[in-house]
């Protein structure tokens, strides 16, 4: 496992978010992620963990606090948001592949449109990425023809094709059949060994133990506990964490 550097990639301070219906999803959440670090966020459903990482690339807005991503302050300035989204890749629970495009086109769409790179160039890179996630032979199929695990691996390759510095995973294995969870986790583990910064919302304890540098527990919109995996799972300092671990282990 590569060691994170001291450089800060994501800095979230006292983030508060209300939904339009008045529900407060985040109540002053803090998190610092360093470059190359793999942070796993756990917590009961409704604790705001998905909402929290979705604020990192401005898929959700927030009302109070501050978030800085790779040195760019997240504000309502659209130029900042676009700049951040180019640096931050996201993998969704429901894959969200584009069903009307082939697997290869799913990967090449954004680099060609957003980064204005030559198409042939991007296609070469895309095929290499598909090779890396183990589905090179599916490049010309459509997402609907793939299994859930294959689709999620395509989604990871799609995010990587933009060459992001940060990858966000929003419960990447929750929508998968059990036998497909492993193939996706293996791809994520291989990524973690590279230099990329990852923030992963997941319930996969084994993955957290083996891959994460730090595990974070969220509850009711705040970060309750932050610790190295060994400490987090064996000797957490907060009552709330123990209760949560009792429920899932």
């Amino acid at each position: 496992m590569s060691q994170p550097s001291a450089e800060t990639m994501i800095e979230a301070r006292a983030v508060e978010k209300w939904y339009p219906n008045g529900f407060q999803a985040l109540r002053g959440a803090d998190l610092t992620v360093r470059r190359g670090e793999v942070v796993v966020i756990m917590g009961p459903s409704g604790s705001g963990k998905s909402t929290f990482i979705r604020t990192f690339n401005a898929l959700e807005d927030f009302q109070k606090g501050s978030i800085t991503v790779d040195g760019i302050a997240l504000s309502n300035d659209l130029r900042n948001i676009d700049a951040i989204r180019r640096e931050v890749g996201m993998v969704f629970q429901q894959f969200n592949l584009f069903p009307h495009l082939s697997v290869l086109e799913n990967l090449t769409l954004a680099p060609v449109l957003v980064r204005r790179r030559p198409k042939a160039d991007v296609e070469r890179q895309a095929r290499a990425l598909l090779e890396r996630v183990g589905i090179a032979e599916q490049a010309d199929k459509f997402p609907g023809q793939l299994s859930g695990g294959q689709q999620q691996r395509v989604a990871i390759a799609r995010a990587l094709c933009m060459e992001p510095r940060i990858l966000l995973f929003d419960e990447p294995t929750s929508a998968l059949d059990p036998e497909m969870v492993r193939e996706v986790l293996e791809v994520m583990q291989a990524l973690a060994n590279d230099d990329i910064t990852m923030v992963v919302v997941t319930h996969e304890v084994k993955f957290a133990r083996q891959v994460a540098h730090r595990v974070v527990l969220m509850s009711e919109g705040v970060v309750v506990e932050e610790a190295e995996p060994e400490v987090f799972f064996t000797n957490p300092s907060h009552q709330r964490t123990r209760k949560f671990l009792d429920q899932i282990l």
């Binding site: 898929l59 989204r85 180019r86 890749g89 996201m90 429901q94 584009f98 769409l109 957003v114």
Partner: peptide
């Protein structure tokens, strides 16, 4: 069209018109 399609396009850095027109 599921909301996730738009979110996926936006999170890849596509602008609003690009996400709309291409996805």
């Amino acid at each position: 069209v599921p909301r996730g399609q738009f979110e996926a396009a936006r999170s890849l850095g596509l602008s609003y018109p690009q996400a709309l027109g291409k996805v």
